[in-house]
Amino acid sequence: MTQAIAAKGIRIDFAPRGGVLQRMEITDEATSIAPLHRAPWSRADVPVNAPPHEEWLAGDFLAAPFGAKGPHGLHGLPANGDWRVTPSGPGTLRAILEGEVQGATVIKELSLQDDHPFVYQRHLFIGGSGALPVANHAMVSVPNGARLSFSRKRWWETLAEPLETTRGRSRLAYPRRTEDAAEFPAADGSSVNLHRYPWGEAHEDFVAGIEDPTSRLGWTAVVRPTEGDLFLSLRNPAQLPMTMLWHSNGGRDYAPWNSRHTGCLGVEEGAALPLLGLSSRETPDPLTAAGQPGLVTLDPQGSTDIRHVIGAIRWPSGQTVAGVMLDGDLLTITGDWGAERTVALRGSWLGIGQQGAQKPKPAADWDL
């Protein structure tokens, strides 16, 4: 059963099974925007040996460890387990993962604020040991195509192997790395423009962009011209230096996908070096060499706080986003032909300019 929280102009639904931010609905300029994707199947369509999260694939969830081979699949226990919702204040939902991740207790907190078109999302790892790949896993519904823009990236890189070969199709070349997002190598020898969705007909692909170390604010903008709106993903690039794109557009022919899972764009922000097909094999790897974290490191005696913001606004011009700038508690989005919107944002919440996010409160202060 889902639970809802709301503030003026925004409402979200949370599903404790899988810890899914299942739906986000924003009212902006008298228009309702619901940008998150939901898979077109029921639980009965999902094979018994599939990861549990495929039964309820929708919205946004936490993947940790991301890409690891284990009993909880490629997205880990947070995406496949149960979360216990605990009491919290107005406009806030807090939940605790049943079970541990590398010995850490994991707390999820989703909060809203009146007239802010954003969900403020944080995950707190209390204790635990070692380092692990972590990413948020927002899925945007783009049935009519989209235009993508990003904060400055050093390069783009695919996995070691294609997502699909014998039971489906992948469009990109694997493994490959290039600095130009507009001309990423394709499997057939041509090139693909990563700034556009889709990249081709009936394909399943994954590619990651590595942030420029000088970036102050990490952002991804997905313009949906037909819908007249804009999805935004914001993060502190000093903590989460990777933007990973999952194109799921009819490229899997087996159940439950059956070539019908189309128009889905995953915008997955995180630190997940092992998913880079070339860079993960280099010593030192190019993230570490530039002082960027390739993994999230847990603190056995303390906690690790990961923050991420997603939201949406009306964007009737359909212009490609040229820039996103944070100034105090205001976020200004500009288009490549002069469109501009300024919206409210908790300016200090992401801990921009710090090595990580805001310092969390002591574990004793949480209702565990």
Results as ranks from 00 to 15, higher is better:
Pro316Tyr: 08
Asp114Lys: 00
Arg196His: 12
Gly70Trp: 02
Ile306Ala: 08
Gly67Pro: 07
Asp299Ile: 02
Met325Leu: 12
Glu183His: 14
Leu112Arg: 01
Ser88Gln: 03
Arg43Ala: 15
Gln358Thr: 14
Pro241Arg: 11
His261Asp: 04
Ala187Tyr: 00
Arg235Cys: 12
Arg252Lys: 12
Pro362Cys: 07
Ala34Val: 07
Ser32Asp: 11
Gly70Ile: 06
Ser279Lys: 03
Thr304Cys: 14
Thr31Arg: 15
Gly356Arg: 13
Ile210Phe: 11
Tyr120Ala: 06
Val20Cys: 11
Arg177Phe: 00
Ser317Gln: 05
Glu183Asn: 11
Thr332Gln: 04
Leu278Phe: 01
Met244Gln: 13
Leu110Tyr: 15
Ala173Met: 10
Pro316Ser: 06
Ser303Glu: 04
Arg252Asn: 04
Arg23Asp: 14
Val46Pro: 00
Met24Asp: 06
Ala290Thr: 01
Val321Glu: 03
Gly335Leu: 03
Glu29Leu: 15
Ala4Arg: 13
Val192Ala: 08
Ala186Ile: 03
His53Gly: 03
Thr165Asp: 09
Ala255Ile: 08
Glu100Ala: 12
His195Gln: 08
Phe66Pro: 00
Ser280Trp: 09
Ser279Gln: 02
Ser111His: 15
Pro225His: 02
Phe118Gln: 08
Ala146Lys: 12
Lys359Ala: 13
Ile26Ala: 08
Val309Cys: 10
Ala339Thr: 05
Arg152Asp: 13
Arg224Tyr: 01
Asn144Gln: 12
Tyr197Glu: 00
Pro237Asp: 04
Gly323Thr: 08
Lys153Asp: 03
Thr288Gly: 14
Ala63Arg: 11
Arg281Met: 02
Gly351Ile: 05
Ile310Lys: 04
Pro78Gly: 11
Ala146Pro: 05
Phe66Lys: 04
Gly76Asn: 00
Arg147Glu: 08
Gln113Ile: 10
Leu240Val: 02
Ala208Gly: 03
Phe118Pro: 12
Leu278Val: 12
Arg341Val: 04
Glu201Ser: 10
Gln358His: 07
Gln354Ala: 15
Val106Pro: 08
Arg252Pro: 01
Met24Leu: 15
Thr105Tyr: 02
Lys8Arg: 15
Gly335Ala: 04
His247Thr: 14
Val134Cys: 06
